Simulated assay, not measured.
Amino acid sequence: MTDLSRYPITRKWPAQHPECLQLYSLPTPNGVKVSIMLEETGLDYEAHRVSFDTQDQRSPEFLSLNPNNKIPAILDPNGPGGEPIALFESGAILIYLADKTGELLPQDPQGRYHGLQWLMFQVGGLGPMFGQIGYFNKFAGKDIEDKRPLERYVEEAKRLLGVLDKRLAGREWLLGDHYSVVDIATFPWIRNLVGFYDAGELVEFANFPHVDRALRAFLARPAVQRGLTIPE
Rank of each mutant, 00 (worst) to 15 (best):
G81N: 10
R112A: 04
W173F: 09
P222E: 08
N69A: 11
V224R: 03
S51A: 13
L43F: 02
R213W: 02
L215K: 00
L97Y: 04
F196L: 14
D183K: 12
V154F: 02
S51N: 01
Q122V: 00
G79Q: 03
T2M: 12
L161E: 00
L116E: 09
G31S: 05
G134S: 05
D212A: 13
L161P: 01
G91D: 05
A169G: 13
V154S: 12
L219Q: 15
M37A: 15
D143S: 02
S180N: 03
P27Y: 03
K142E: 15
S90V: 07
D177V: 12
F62N: 02
E103D: 06
L228T: 01
I230N: 14
E145N: 13
I71C: 05
E151S: 06
I74F: 01
S5F: 13
E204S: 13
L116S: 12
E19C: 14
Y179Q: 00
G170T: 03
D146H: 15
E204R: 09
R148G: 09
T10F: 05
A169P: 06
I230E: 04
P80M: 09
L97V: 04
N66Y: 01
P67K: 04
S180V: 09
A199K: 07
G162M: 07
M129P: 05
Q55M: 13
H48M: 10
T101K: 04
D3G: 03
H17M: 14
L119F: 15
N30D: 01
H178T: 15
Q55L: 13
P84S: 05
D183W: 01
S64F: 00
Y45L: 15
Q107F: 15
Q57N: 00
I36L: 08
R11F: 07
G141W: 02
R191V: 05
L43A: 09
R213M: 11
G82Q: 15
E61T: 04
P77V: 14
V163M: 11
P231N: 08
L150G: 04
Q122Y: 01
